[in-house]
Design a protein around this nucleic acid. Sequence first.
DNA 1: CGTGGGATTGACACGACTCAACCCCGGTGG
DNA 2: CCACCGGGGTTGAGTCGTGTCAATCCCACG
Lengths: 247, 247
Amino acid sequence: MNPFDATRVSGQVGPSALDVCEKCGSRVTGICRPLDVAALDDVASESEQTSLPARATLFREGDPATRAFSIMNGTVKLTRLLPDGRQQVVGFRFAGDIIGYTTAKTYPFDAELLTPSQFCRIDRPKLDKLLRTYPTLERRLLDLCLEELAQTQEHVVTVGRRTAESRVAAFILGLVEAQRRRGPLPKEIAMPMTRADIADFLGLTLETVSRTLTGFRKRNLIAEPAHQRMQILSMAGIMQLAEGEGD
Amino acid sequence: MNPFDATRVSGQVGPSALDVCEKCGSRVTGICRPLDVAALDDVASESEQTSLPARATLFREGDPATRAFSIMNGTVKLTRLLPDGRQQVVGFRFAGDIIGYTTAKTYPFDAELLTPSQFCRIDRPKLDKLLRTYPTLERRLLDLCLEELAQTQEHVVTVGRRTAESRVAAFILGLVEAQRRRGPLPKEIAMPMTRADIADFLGLTLETVSRTLTGFRKRNLIAEPAHQRMQILSMAGIMQLAEGEGD
DNA sequence: CGTGGGATTGACACGACTCAACCCCGGTGG
DNA sequence: CCACCGGGGTTGAGTCGTGTCAATCCCACG
């Protein structure tokens, strides 16, 4: 399980060139995957594209949940606030993921861009109409939600029961997995989040994350050839730390 | 938000006497809530009642997910295993909650009874047929899933960023909230889980949970008049510990 | 060249874990 | 009837992993 995104659904195969929607150019890995051309057309006409710079927020925790977003490219950080002002990152989202769909009146978390991003935006009333028109769409949403739930539970395990080293290793594996699901795995993977973001995701401090990552580097498990880029040198080593060292 | 169960849905009001299904006697707080009488009838005829003693397991992580369960009464513990054999409790479920519905081929966690329980059981093929027949049922499932997701994210925050004292306080509030949602809040609430269960839920050790609870008792925040029963003496105090003391 | 955000590193403190002893109570069997 | 047993709970002493605080480095950017 991977706490990073909501794209993978049971039985779903990896993306292929055919999955690209000619309407909006986004890979059809998100909600639209099960739709036929007519339905895609319909969805496309109801939604609109936007793009925003890094650090922009799509919405904040508590805002009225008036629309949902489908990420076309870029990375988004989802956070919840604590009463004392600190934050917990509840997940990262990438191209193809859906953000902000909820039956509640308000969003349950902040959504902030880590990179400049493009996405499709659709108003809730329109989306609800589409859901009624295309039952497979609702089915799809349920699938995504169930998958996301399983991932979040997995993340609870990570945060609740693992050492700092094991958490960071699990985080790296999650990053790799998210990347892999979106296409062939490059030697160098993007890591647009800061140490602080990772720490807030894993329930650690940024210092501990930094120390752990330098530890990994010194043991030649990973390399960081450039800012926000990472190379996995020993996948086996990372996996061992993530799983075996749960203790 | 409450990490305990999946019953609450946005806009839903508290249960009333009218919510009891005359077919199976269970309160219609679970999946059946939005159904009309005919549909309820249909659902009832497709499912069957069972009861099991405490410590029985409904299913285990990795078992083929062949059926779903609706709890009529009793308490269920959901756990995930770690490679090293320890467990993380991902949630507790009570009367009215749905367990085991997933689109994956296998269950993502163990479900073990903490108390003797009765429940309705329905085979996946039958349930899927019902979902196709009654779109509101699927809608309802999506609602429940979204709600559960929000609760689980909230739990990530609890486990990831709070002190032992704050976690235990949050746990108590969750218990209370789960109870309240099922009827008028009794002075004494049931707490069928052991210190070890609570610890595995909160990412602590059972000793820490024990120490924290005795601390609460000595400060007259709570009382434990009998084994597995708890009385809240100072709700305000508990809430302050849960929220303010996030640090 | 100066500035600021991100990252690293070190010294130290402390909260939670570990290990272990002990209590309490209900069940069981001699 | 009571001794024994086992599971759950409590309590204590000591350790250790992270958090805290603070200094420093690096580099992109203006």
